[in-house]
Amino acid sequence: AAPPDEASLQSRINKATNPLNKETDWDSIKGFCDQLDNEPEGPQLATRLLAHKIQSPQEWEAMQALTVLETCMKNCGKRFHSEVGKFRFLNELIKVVSPKYLGARAPEPVKKKVLEMMYSWTVRLPNETKIADAYQMLKKQGIVKQ
């Protein structure tokens, strides 16, 4: 069985992004953010779990995952910011919006929100330079309208 912390981050993200949720499950989202912040490997594991959910073809599941990501970016600390600011994670977001990868099938609202969030991070987190690099590349490819 997965080690305890792995199980609880996995179970929390499953609950927070469950497509059957009638509305946003803020308790699970808060629990996920707190949990990832309090573990040595938390940010790395959390970004892997989030990337998988964001790439879901189910729009409501993916949108809830983006809400979890947005909440954690506001409430979690530097370690999470620097994990999100790595190409290892940014590449997973790029796959969602790029027609070369999942972009042709990904739901429009999900792609729109990914681009909006990436842009907001280039403004709020200027020292996470890889985010700006990734966003610039999306502009060059015309995925972001000038």
């Binding site: 040595p40 490997e41 790395q44 370690r79 790595k86 190409f87 290892r88 940014l90 590449n91 790029i94 796959k95 790029s98 990868y101 890889k130 690099d133 990734a134 590349m137």
Partner: peptide, 15 residues
């Protein structure tokens, strides 16, 4: 104190 594992390894930007 808590063991702070900091890993700076990363991938290249997906083109």
């Amino acid at each position: 104190g808590k063991i702070e594992f900091h890993d700076d390894s990363d991938e290249d930007l997906l083109e």
